[in-house]
């Protein structure tokens, strides 16, 4: 991993700037405009500083997520790596629940699958097999992403600093043991207001959803961090992201894993 070009003061200022935009739901210009010299290490340090700020106020971290995990999306962005983010207690919306649109900027939904671990994973060198052996169960999830950047336009460093556009998530449906799901080939059908807007299959996530968890463990390993046992991890989008507005309702069906629904109010 690269070194820092920003000093501690700049990292804290950037974290405060982005977190305020998140909490008060307004757009900002992408961070690399303000700090063109920032490195990937700086970007992750800013994200971890946002996490530290939240935890210091008593916010509980309830899971992790991977982003930009489709090869197509990475090629389109000209990046070679996905990114990760953290999930907070107040991000959770119950299955069938309401998402308060006014708390967000320009939300989009993505169909995902989540892993819940039963053993710690610490990179480097974590493989799909390690992930499957450490998985308690998988279950469906819908992520609501909401970049704090104007028009959802960013580069990889800016999005990493912005907690990988994390904002809300819904989980529910039917949990399954990993040995009971064909994770590469299970299908997903996403409907908004009763119309099918996207379909996909597990392989859309880095070829196999467990590869995404392995990559997360290896990226965490670079910072000498581990994914503890009992962690909820969303692996990245199986479908294209779909922009939603107040009044929209959605329902996502997962092969062998039930369904998830919710609405924007």
């Amino acid at each position: 991993m690269s070194e820092n070009n920003l000093n501690r003061e700049q990292i804290e200022a950037a974290a405060a700037h982005l977190e305020k935009a998140e909490l008060e739901a307004y757009e900002v210009t992408k961070l690399t405009n303000d700090y063109p010299e920032m490195t990937y290490k700086d970007a992750f340090d800013i994200q971890w500083e946002i996490r530290r700020r939240k935890e210091a106020r008593g916010t509980k971290i309830v899971g992790l997520k991977m982003g930009l995990t489709s090869w197509a999306k990475m090629a389109q962005m000209g990046v070679e790596h996905p990114c990760y983010g953290f999930l907070c207690d107040y991000f959770t919306v119950p299955d069938g629940g309401e998402i308060k649109t006014d708390e967000l900027i320009h939300p989009k939904i993505e169909a995902e699958i989540a892993f819940v671990t039963k053993k710690a994973l610490k990179g480097p060198g974590i493989t799909i097999a390690d992930v499957l052996a450490a998985t308690d169960f998988v279950l469906p999830a819908v992520e609501v992403i909401d970049s704090r950047y104007k028009d959802f336009k960013f580069d990889l460093k800016s999005v990493i600093a912005d907690n990988s556009s994390s904002s809300r998530f819904i989980t529910g449906g039917q949990m399954q043991r990993v040995e009971n799901v064909d994770l590469k080939h299970f299908g997903v059908v996403m409907e908004v207001n009763g119309e099918i807007v996207a379909t996909g299959a597990g392989a859309a996530v880095l070829g196999h959803p467990a590869a995404s968890v392995a990559m997360l463990a290896n990226m965490f390993g670079e910072r000498d961090e581990e994914i503890p046992a009992g962690t909820f991890v969303m692996v990245g989008a199986v479908t294209a992201a779909f922009q939603c507005k107040k009044g929209d309702s959605f329902s996502v069906r997962y092969q062998g894993l039930g369904s998830i629904s919710g609405r924007f109010v």
Partner: peptide, 13 residues
Amino acid sequence: EIISTGAGAAALG
């Protein structure tokens, strides 16, 4: 190389 994914509903639901 994986070039595309989809699900049954892509054909008329």
